[in-house]
Amino acid sequence: MTAKGFGRFAAMLAAVMLLAACGEGDKQAQTAQSAADKPVPNPLRVATEGAYPPYNMVDPAGNLIGYDMDVMREVCSRMKVECGITAQAWDGIIPGLQAGKYDVIIAGMSITDERKQVVDFTQGYAITPAYFVALNDSPLHQLDLGLERIGLDEIDTTEEAAIAALKDALKGKSVGVQNATIHANFVEDALGDAVSIRRYDTQENLALDLASGRIDVGLADSTAWEAFLDSEAGRKAGFVGPGFDGGPFGEGLGIAVRKGEDRLLDALNAALNSMREDGTLKRMAEQWFGFDASAR
């Protein structure tokens, strides 16, 4: 490698980094600008994923449907704004909001401390636990932790023992999660040194690989699993161990907006409140999940 060649290469690299740095610096300066006074946009640009049944998915006619979609359309009609909903890749859905590609996200997104540092959330519009799922012939089904639910806000000694036992049982197994989810973060932080983590772009692909036996077990939201477990391929799989909520799993699902856009946030919360009060939210949850997942 010649000295001259390398010097030129280094100079090119420096130029690219500088360009990236400039692009970034300005972005931060702009977001603070009078966001609180910004009026509610009309039409409201809404992002969802479109691959996370039963929250949001695409039907063969190409329409976005699901619990999220019903909730959002009702919220918009109560806010008296037009809604334009588009499907976005899950990975980039928060950066896309920050970049101003759309105004709100409703995509089965859990309210977590990590995300609260970069976006604001409405009140929760659904709360459901996370579950592990494995094929029925997996030895993991013999695992009995004696608990139905582990709340991770405060962990007592039995729960601690249960998590340790779970970690033991999962040692060396491959665990599938969707990239950029609370489930991915939990597996990374709590089990990362014991299991091999497989990250998927969508829940649907995760389910596909679980069914084909490529991974030993998957972790995802219980209601997201239901759609799979009800399908032909999912009949040979089932829940393993207790459900998880609280702590890293957050405070339920919320609608996300850019930080500081308080007028929009208030309007969304008001609409959700009225839907909760007149039972609309409960009815929608029962329709999509078979139980009232909207309860807090």
Partner: peptide
């Protein structure tokens, strides 16, 4: 481009005297 595109375009537009946010569709 997907994650950082809008920021960069906004910055470039700023060089040409445009103050607002430039938003890029997918």
């Amino acid at each position: 481009f997907f994650f950082g595109g809008s920021g960069m375009v906004t910055w470039v537009a700023g060089l040409f005297g445009y103050g607002g946010r430039v938003e890029l569709s997918a």
